[in-house]
């Protein structure tokens, strides 16, 4: 199973956003896309989801052009929980869209709630949750869809440092249980190094891939904190990012 993005180019209005972005994700890999704000990371996801068409380049899955959208489970940059749905119904949204009746969809997701730390909150409304709980609900909504590829757009960007670390650990543990192929967009170098098998570094807009870093360190990594090699890698990535901005 391989997802390939090949030389994607895109101009939105007058803004030249993507200037030939290529990347690859193989089965069970965790890929991070790291880049400055406004580089075009979310735009890349919009191309994958088919809500935008690239001006050039192509996206293929196992050698075939991607068509239909039932490949990706997507978590938008803001949690996008529906305020008018209870927590459990937000999590079950994808199943309902696929045609499952509400009651059956609820029964399917109910047993998963404890693992997401949402036990006892299924009848709550989203605005009654803390920021971290909202993100976990949004993640749960993404994971229950059972799609081969996860697209996570800065899932922890809006959280405080402590909650973010807790959520990263928790995500790492979840992904240890089920190795699902994941594309993560992030600003956070430490997060990328801790979670990824491979990191694609984007330039400022118009985005190109500046460098690709492999992260071979053994897992789990979050429990122990970054080792010496990971720290060295973080430094290298940061330096490359800062140099890119100076250009």
């Amino acid at each position: 199973m391989t997802l390939r993005l090949d030389d994607l180019r895109l101009t939105r209005g007058v803004t030249h956003v993507l200037d030939g972005v290529s990347l690859e994700a193989r089965a069970a890999e965790f890929i991070s896309i790291l880049g400055p704000s406004g580089a075009g990371k979310s735009t890349l996801f919009e191309l994958l989801l088919g809500s935008l068409e690239p001006d050039g380049g192509q996206i293929s899955f196992n050698g075939q052009p991607v068509q239909g959208r039932d490949l990706f489970a997507f978590m938008p940059q803001r949690d996008a929980l529906m305020p008018w749905r209870r927590v459990i119904d937000n999590i079950a949204l994808g199943l309902e869209v696929q045609g499952l009746p509400r009651r059956a969809a609820r029964e399917r997701v109910r047993p998963l709630l404890p693992r997401f730390g949402l036990d006892g909150f299924e009848r709550h409304w989203p605005h009654q949750l803390s920021g971290g709980m909202r993100q976990r609900a949004a993640l749960a909504r993404t994971l229950v869809q059972d799609r081969p590829l996860l697209l996570l757009d800065e899932p922890f960007g809006a959280l405080d440092a402590l909650t973010r670390t807790r959520m990263q650990r928790w995500l790492e543990a979840r992904l240890q249980e089920t190795r699902v192929t994941t594309l993560l967009v992030t600003h956070d170098v430490r997060e990328a190094v801790a979670l990824s098998d491979r990191i694609y570094l984007l330039s400022p807009r118009p985005a190109r891939v500046v460098e690709v870093f492999d992260v071979p360190q053994p897992r789990p990594r979050m429990e122990t904190g970054p080792g010496e090699e990971a720290l060295a890698l973080e430094t290298r990535i940061l330096r490359t990012l800062l140099e890119g901005e100076r250009e």
């Binding site: 989801l49 039932d70 938008p76 996008a80 949204l93 869209v97 696929q98």
Partner: peptide, 8 residues
């Protein structure tokens, strides 16, 4: 966008 990605 989310709903679209779910196939709605």
């Amino acid at each position: 966008r989310l709903l679209r990605s779910m196939g709605a």
